[in-house]
Amino acid sequence: MIRIPKNSLIFLTILCLLFFTITSPDWLKINGITPCWPVILLLPFSLKNSPWRSAIAAFLLGMFVDSFTISDVSYIPSLLALSLLWSYYGLHNKKIELFLNIGLMAISGTAFVGISIWAQKIIQYSVLRNNWFHSWSIYVLISEVIITGLVAPFLSSWLLLAYKKN
């Protein structure tokens, strides 16, 4: 595998995030829902870095993604929790490059981020508390989990291997 300098890799990751967040290409959508890009990009970084560095990366990533959304609901709390969890997991497990393993971690991470956003929306908008069955949330959550689970094994495992080489 070609050795890519770490700084270039981080730069490439940010470029990818920028591109996919803004353009949200149709060929990478399920039912109009895009993959959870913060999870896909944070997962390999957290697995190969210390909890502190991962937490800082999660905070910055969350701030960046939040700047493209319209309400006060934030990605930061869920990404912070995930970064710490993945970082500790990465320190104690060696065979994490497995294709399926990465996919499962991305799926559970996306579900956690989705539930966090859903909960924040319910807390923020009282009108959503009138009816606890939100079909749109379930729809978005399931679609996002599926598409992230499909994309993550390819992109995240490649990034993880690249980080490992560094």
């Binding site: 803004i22 353009t23 949200s24 039912n31 109009g32 829902i33 895009t34 959304t69 319209i70 309400s71 609901v73 989705g114 956003i117 859903w118 929306k121 729809y139 978005v140 996002e144």
Partner: peptide, 13 residues
Amino acid sequence: ISRSSRNWWQQLE
């Protein structure tokens, strides 16, 4: 130029 009409945030750019 960008559309997110079905996601957690429903917005257009």
